[in-house]
């Protein structure tokens, strides 16, 4: 990265129906995080206490869309971020949570809240504070336009670093053969 002459870029990140593993891999850039912090500042992210995404240069989203609230947050990111990146298998194709897509929601509910081992007087939570689950888990690009995809479960820290530094330096991000993997 070049020396910071410009104001810092604002970066927002969030996890929708993901496991936080993609965020973990982001933190796996290790000491390079300190370098990165000279060039960017975080907007909404699990690392800050900013609760809503404001105007940003880059938005990074892990996880697909599994409930009404995810849709809302995704749209908020799209409306505010110049560049939106889908990171990881869940964001790109639904990932593990999408394994419920071949089951009916009712079946899954029954299993977890009625049939479960050691559960007494089971019933299904239905408070209005709980966001409505969708019948299927969707990848992000089915709901909004996504500018870049970083594959992997999770993508390696080096892959994430490469995309970010390319963007910071004004290059078109490119992973190259060695940084693309799907596991």
């Amino acid at each position: 990265m070049n020396e910071p002459a410009q104001p810092k870029l604002r970066v927002a990140t969030t996890s929708l129906a993901g496991c936080f593993g993609c965020h973990t891999s982001f933190l796996d850039i290790d000491e390079r995080l300190l370098e990165l912090l000279k060039h960017i500042e975080f907007d909404r992210s699990p690392l800050t206490d900013i609760k809503h995404c404001g105007p940003c240069d880059i938005g990074i989203i892990e996880g697909g869309v599994c409930n009404a609230e995810n849709v809302h947050v995704l749209r908020e990111f799209r409306a505010n971020c110049k560049i939106l990146i889908a990171i990881g298998a869940c964001a790109i194709n639904g990932g593990l949570p999408a394994q419920r897509n071949h089951l009916s929601l009712a079946e899954v509910l029954e299993e977890v809240y009625h049939a479960q081992h050691g559960l007494v007087d089971g019933f299904i939570p239905n408070d209005p504070e709980l966001p409505l689950p969708l019948d299927k888990v969707h990848p992000l690009h089915e709901v909004v336009k996504i500018d870049y995809f970083i594959p992997g479960c999770p993508p390696s820290a080096d892959a994430i670093w490469k995309v970010l530094t390319d963007l910071l330096d004004g290059r078109e991000p490119e992973l190259g053969h060695d940084l693309i993997h799907y596991d």
Binding site: A17, Q99, R100, L103, E107, V108, V112, L130
Partner: peptide, 9 residues
């Protein structure tokens, strides 16, 4: 506020 349903799938 979220769910997965892992036990089922």
């Amino acid at each position: 506020v979220e769910f997965r349903g892992f036990e089922k799938f």
